[in-house]
Simulated scan of single mutants.
Amino acid sequence: MEDVHLRPATAADDEFLYDLHRRTLGDVIEATWGPWDDDVQREFHRKWFAPDTVEIVFVGGRPAGMVQAAMTDATTFYISRIEIAPEVQGGGVGTALLRGLLDRARASGANAVELHVLQLNRARHLYERLGFQVADVEPPKLRMRLAL
Protein backbone atom coordinates (compact mmCIF):
# COMPACT_ATOMS: atom_id res chain seq x y z
CA MET A 1 0.00 0.00 0.00
CA GLU A 2 1.18 3.49 -0.83
CA ASP A 3 1.84 6.11 1.85
CA VAL A 4 -1.38 7.49 3.41
CA HIS A 5 -1.43 10.85 5.15
CA LEU A 6 -3.90 13.61 6.02
CA ARG A 7 -3.92 17.37 5.73
CA PRO A 8 -6.52 19.93 6.78
CA ALA A 9 -8.98 20.87 4.06
CA THR A 10 -9.14 24.35 2.62
CA ALA A 11 -11.82 26.20 0.67
CA ALA A 12 -9.90 25.23 -2.48
CA ASP A 13 -10.86 21.57 -1.84
CA ASP A 14 -14.56 22.29 -2.37
CA GLU A 15 -14.91 20.89 -5.91
CA PHE A 16 -12.63 17.91 -5.20
CA LEU A 17 -14.84 16.97 -2.23
CA TYR A 18 -18.06 17.32 -4.21
CA ASP A 19 -16.69 15.14 -7.01
CA LEU A 20 -15.35 12.62 -4.48
CA HIS A 21 -18.78 12.38 -2.85
CA ARG A 22 -20.45 11.68 -6.17
CA ARG A 23 -17.87 9.08 -7.18
CA THR A 24 -17.84 7.26 -3.83
CA LEU A 25 -21.50 7.39 -2.84
CA GLY A 26 -23.43 8.30 -5.99
CA ASP A 27 -24.60 4.73 -6.60
CA VAL A 28 -25.61 4.26 -2.96
CA ILE A 29 -27.45 7.59 -2.90
CA GLU A 30 -29.32 6.68 -6.09
CA ALA A 31 -30.21 3.21 -4.79
CA THR A 32 -31.49 4.78 -1.56
CA TRP A 33 -33.26 7.94 -2.75
CA GLY A 34 -33.52 7.71 -6.53
CA PRO A 35 -31.70 9.47 -9.37
CA TRP A 36 -28.85 11.81 -8.51
CA ASP A 37 -30.10 15.39 -8.43
CA ASP A 38 -27.13 17.67 -8.89
CA ASP A 39 -28.96 20.73 -7.52
CA VAL A 40 -30.00 18.89 -4.35
CA GLN A 41 -26.57 17.34 -3.87
CA ARG A 42 -24.76 20.64 -4.40
CA GLU A 43 -27.03 22.28 -1.81
CA PHE A 44 -26.32 19.44 0.62
CA HIS A 45 -22.60 19.86 -0.04
CA ARG A 46 -22.77 23.64 0.38
CA LYS A 47 -24.42 23.27 3.80
CA TRP A 48 -22.10 20.48 4.90
CA PHE A 49 -18.66 21.67 3.79
CA ALA A 50 -16.77 23.46 6.55
CA PRO A 51 -13.06 23.27 5.71
CA ASP A 52 -11.97 23.56 9.34
CA THR A 53 -13.71 20.24 10.17
CA VAL A 54 -12.46 18.14 7.24
CA GLU A 55 -9.18 16.43 6.44
CA ILE A 56 -8.10 15.39 2.96
CA VAL A 57 -6.69 11.88 2.61
CA PHE A 58 -3.62 11.58 0.41
CA VAL A 59 -2.45 8.27 -1.05
CA GLY A 60 0.91 8.23 -2.76
CA GLY A 61 0.98 12.03 -2.73
CA ARG A 62 -2.40 12.42 -4.48
CA PRO A 63 -5.74 13.43 -2.91
CA ALA A 64 -7.84 10.27 -2.66
CA GLY A 65 -10.39 10.78 0.08
CA MET A 66 -11.67 12.72 3.03
CA VAL A 67 -12.55 12.28 6.67
CA GLN A 68 -14.52 14.33 9.16
CA ALA A 69 -14.27 13.11 12.76
CA ALA A 70 -14.08 14.55 16.28
CA MET A 71 -15.01 14.01 19.90
CA THR A 72 -18.73 14.70 20.39
CA ASP A 73 -18.61 14.56 24.17
CA ALA A 74 -16.12 13.46 26.83
CA THR A 75 -16.35 9.79 25.92
CA THR A 76 -17.46 9.42 22.27
CA PHE A 77 -15.48 9.94 19.08
CA TYR A 78 -17.77 10.35 16.08
CA ILE A 79 -16.81 9.74 12.46
CA SER A 80 -19.17 12.05 10.57
CA ARG A 81 -17.94 11.21 7.08
CA ILE A 82 -15.29 9.09 5.50
CA GLU A 83 -14.96 8.73 1.74
CA ILE A 84 -12.24 6.94 -0.18
CA ALA A 85 -11.98 7.29 -3.97
CA PRO A 86 -13.09 4.16 -5.83
CA GLU A 87 -9.73 3.79 -7.57
CA VAL A 88 -7.94 3.21 -4.24
CA GLN A 89 -10.65 1.21 -2.47
CA GLY A 90 -9.78 -2.37 -1.65
CA GLY A 91 -6.08 -1.66 -1.19
CA GLY A 92 -6.05 -1.20 2.57
CA VAL A 93 -6.44 2.60 2.60
CA GLY A 94 -9.78 2.53 4.43
CA THR A 95 -8.48 0.06 6.99
CA ALA A 96 -5.35 2.13 7.62
CA LEU A 97 -7.38 5.32 7.86
CA LEU A 98 -9.88 3.82 10.29
CA ARG A 99 -7.14 2.32 12.47
CA GLY A 100 -5.55 5.77 12.62
CA LEU A 101 -8.89 7.28 13.63
CA LEU A 102 -9.30 4.64 16.34
CA ASP A 103 -5.83 5.53 17.65
CA ARG A 104 -6.83 9.22 17.61
CA ALA A 105 -10.02 8.39 19.50
CA ARG A 106 -8.08 6.48 22.18
CA ALA A 107 -5.57 9.32 22.52
CA SER A 108 -8.50 11.73 22.96
CA GLY A 109 -9.83 9.68 25.87
CA ALA A 110 -12.82 8.20 24.05
CA ASN A 111 -14.28 4.92 25.24
CA ALA A 112 -16.31 4.44 22.05
CA VAL A 113 -16.33 5.37 18.37
CA GLU A 114 -19.61 5.85 16.51
CA LEU A 115 -20.61 6.45 12.92
CA HIS A 116 -23.62 6.26 10.64
CA VAL A 117 -23.58 4.35 7.38
CA LEU A 118 -26.22 4.00 4.70
CA GLN A 119 -27.59 0.47 4.84
CA LEU A 120 -26.63 -0.17 1.20
CA ASN A 121 -23.07 1.14 1.58
CA ARG A 122 -20.43 -1.57 1.07
CA ALA A 123 -18.24 0.16 3.69
CA ARG A 124 -20.43 -1.42 6.35
CA HIS A 125 -18.46 -4.66 5.86
CA LEU A 126 -15.19 -2.86 6.59
CA TYR A 127 -16.62 -1.37 9.76
CA GLU A 128 -17.87 -4.77 10.90
CA ARG A 129 -14.50 -6.37 10.14
CA LEU A 130 -12.85 -3.78 12.41
CA GLY A 131 -15.27 -4.57 15.24
CA PHE A 132 -18.07 -2.03 14.81
CA GLN A 133 -21.51 -3.37 15.66
CA VAL A 134 -24.95 -2.10 14.70
CA ALA A 135 -26.20 -0.10 17.68
CA ASP A 136 -29.41 1.14 16.08
CA VAL A 137 -31.30 0.98 12.80
CA GLU A 138 -32.28 4.46 11.63
CA PRO A 139 -33.53 3.87 8.07
CA PRO A 140 -31.96 4.35 5.65
CA LYS A 141 -28.90 4.39 7.92
CA LEU A 142 -27.37 2.23 10.58
CA ARG A 143 -25.70 3.69 13.67
CA MET A 144 -22.61 1.63 14.37
CA ARG A 145 -20.50 1.64 17.51
CA LEU A 146 -17.15 0.26 18.58
CA ALA A 147 -16.25 0.13 22.26
CA LEU A 148 -12.59 0.94 22.88
Rank of each mutant, 00 (worst) to 15 (best):
Q68Y: 08
R124T: 07
L101Y: 00
L148I: 15
P51V: 06
G100K: 04
A110Y: 02
I29K: 05
T53I: 04
M144L: 13
D3S: 11
L146R: 00
L120R: 07
P140N: 14
E30I: 03
D39G: 02
P139N: 07
R23N: 01
R104H: 01
P8W: 12
A123E: 09
I84D: 08
R23F: 09
A85F: 03
D14I: 06
R42L: 02
I79A: 04
T75I: 08
T76Q: 07
V67Q: 02
I84K: 00
G26Y: 03
F49E: 01
T53F: 03
F132Y: 12
D14W: 10
A110S: 05
S108I: 05
T24S: 09
W48N: 02
R62D: 05
P51F: 03
L25K: 13
R7K: 10
D73P: 05
V40H: 07
E128V: 02
W48H: 07
T53P: 11
V54H: 15
D136S: 13
T76L: 14
A96I: 10
H45L: 08
F58N: 08
I29A: 10
G34S: 10
L126I: 04
A64W: 06
R81L: 09
G60H: 15
A135I: 03
L126W: 12
V137W: 08
R81C: 05
G94D: 07
D136M: 11
L98F: 12
F132R: 06
D14M: 02
V134W: 14
G92C: 00
V54Q: 10
M144P: 12
T72D: 14
A74G: 15
E15P: 03
V137Q: 00
G91Y: 02
A85G: 08
F49W: 04
I29P: 04
V40S: 09
R62S: 12
A96D: 04
G65A: 05
H5V: 00
L120E: 09
E2K: 14
P139R: 12
T24Q: 00
R129M: 08
E114H: 15
N121K: 05
A50G: 12
